[in-house]
Design a protein around this nucleic acid. Sequence first.
DNA 1: CGCTAACCGAGACGGTACGTCCCGTCTTTAC
DNA 2: GTAAAGACGGGACGTACCGTCTCGGTTAGCG
Lengths: 191, 191, 191, 191
Amino acid sequence: MSHKSPDPRVVRSRQALLEAALAELAEAGYAGFSMESVAVRAGVGRSTLYRHWNDRLRLVADALEVLNVQPARPDPAAEVPARVRVLQLLTHLTDAVVHGPVAAVLPALVHAAAQSDAVADFWHGYSARRRQALVDAITAGVETGELRPVDPVRAAEALSGAVFYRRLMTDRPLTAAEVPGLVDVVLGPDA
Amino acid sequence: MSHKSPDPRVVRSRQALLEAALAELAEAGYAGFSMESVAVRAGVGRSTLYRHWNDRLRLVADALEVLNVQPARPDPAAEVPARVRVLQLLTHLTDAVVHGPVAAVLPALVHAAAQSDAVADFWHGYSARRRQALVDAITAGVETGELRPVDPVRAAEALSGAVFYRRLMTDRPLTAAEVPGLVDVVLGPDA
Amino acid sequence: MSHKSPDPRVVRSRQALLEAALAELAEAGYAGFSMESVAVRAGVGRSTLYRHWNDRLRLVADALEVLNVQPARPDPAAEVPARVRVLQLLTHLTDAVVHGPVAAVLPALVHAAAQSDAVADFWHGYSARRRQALVDAITAGVETGELRPVDPVRAAEALSGAVFYRRLMTDRPLTAAEVPGLVDVVLGPDA
Amino acid sequence: MSHKSPDPRVVRSRQALLEAALAELAEAGYAGFSMESVAVRAGVGRSTLYRHWNDRLRLVADALEVLNVQPARPDPAAEVPARVRVLQLLTHLTDAVVHGPVAAVLPALVHAAAQSDAVADFWHGYSARRRQALVDAITAGVETGELRPVDPVRAAEALSGAVFYRRLMTDRPLTAAEVPGLVDVVLGPDA
DNA sequence: CGCTAACCGAGACGGTACGTCCCGTCTTTAC
DNA sequence: GTAAAGACGGGACGTACCGTCTCGGTTAGCG
């Protein structure tokens, strides 16, 4: 059971590089993303960068893992109504998709995922986890009869989809004010 | 009365370059899009390419215009039920998003639109037109009472959004078989 | 026996181009000499330039012909002493090699002559004519006994050579004040 | 006491590039001198060339340093008569100017010196050193009374000048057979 | 506590693509 | 019918990064 304790220098370098990569991604976009800049930004030799990631897309994927923080699971005792929970989640997504750290990188991510399996894995997993929270909330609402009996998976896709659609295929991303109307359409109007 | 007929050489070059640019975009994505490759692909001198477009993004935008073909408006006399019309449109989109000519450039397009206003204009306009057909169909259905009274715009976004969502944020694009289920969720189950 | 009367436009173009070529040569040197610039300078289409000269070196050579004006032959009745005549010629050369129109072009000419037979022909001929005046003067002086019995050809080469040597192989071209000293060395001191 | 030992790769590249530059200069002249060709000739990446010299003229100047080898000073004990020494030097020059390594680059050198101070410094220095040997020999001869009392500097210029003149301004460079005649003219006939 | 192995930065290396400039040839249009 | 305009393929320019590599210099942790 040898605990290969990691060299602290390695830890330091990796950390600095991941942060630098994220910053570079946000600033320069995915096109325009330069390994050189990342290394400089991190105050690290270019060779050190390549020692840890010889694939720029893996670097990007790893850097994005840091964003991979789930919105807190609801306190099961909190007994929030399903519809409210859905509104919370969607409002959060609506915001994240415009102002969050992922926002800056979103179009690049969509593109990169089409080029690299590693990025695709990350991105699909990330999306799946986000979506799952929505599915759970809808499922709960359907089970308690609070919501009409929709297919929760399909409904979650429609709801999330609308948010991303407005962000990526139109010039006006969804606003918080429009979220209730969206929920009405998919889950039925508030009783 | 001068007809300023354009130099045929110019016509030939422009055409070849636009086609090449589209092919390059589909194959290499937006990052990885190389002016050099486009010129070679078009069998045209590199300087000729730069003579016509010294901005890669304008080239991409111009190249995409070729995709800008309207789906035929429905024959108003055809009297197709609204739900069927929606299913037709969505099934077509589901397919287009995976196999159509746009499919190949879709992720690149999303990325490029984030970099260039010209590309964004094209892409948003293109999406808006597609969406409008859906909005029209839903509106008609709601007016005749055939569909439940949803906000047609929101509904169209949810439906289109789901299709793009599955294409870009998951590893399993929506299949034709899943379309009816999706429509059930948003427009209510078939009576 | 038709006298192909020359198109006046052609005359005009040729003239403008030759002047422009000379100016360009003086300004940009032989390296840096651009056909494009010459055409622009002459206010003439680039194709017009190539119609008349498809070889840049021929253009240069032709442009230089304009400089090919002989210093006036001495009035034979003027009876200038040979030594004075030599001093006149050398002083003129000393000046021409620094301030004259040829001066600007001199190093380029030497170089170009090594690359192009056409330029070499011009340049060698030009030099020969200049030198001949010197040879004639020296020959006359030797014949009259005014100068010591030197080989006039060799002497002319030594005198001219010294002037060019100082211009091209040192950073201090020969000055007018140094000319008499030079003549002393080659033709013997003034009696 | 750090010996900052130079990277052997750098040494190798620089050496190869300098040789290639000289060869290119000899072959293509100064105009026609192509950085690209130099890199190819040296079997070195183009970027490596630019890493070391981003200025073509500095490259040329550096490349010429290799020619900068002094002709052996005469053995002072050798007691060669001044006239013989002069003949030796001039014959050597006559040959060097046609067949030597400098010969190949001579016209290019004259031109390049007019463009670049660095090249000019090299070239003028090089010429000065060559000339000095001649000046020394003549001075010695004048002091011993072996030669008539000429200005040694002027005489050296006339002698060297004649050699270069014949090489650069005529189509028949001076031959060894003509050297004695030249010396006769400048230093007086052999007693 | 000193040695060895790893990790480090610096940066050279051969490349590729960039966007610009000019080449010399050519076609088209205007006078 | 000639000239001007300018498109064409081509090639070199000098720059920026790429990903690989060699180089000494440090630093860590094991023995």
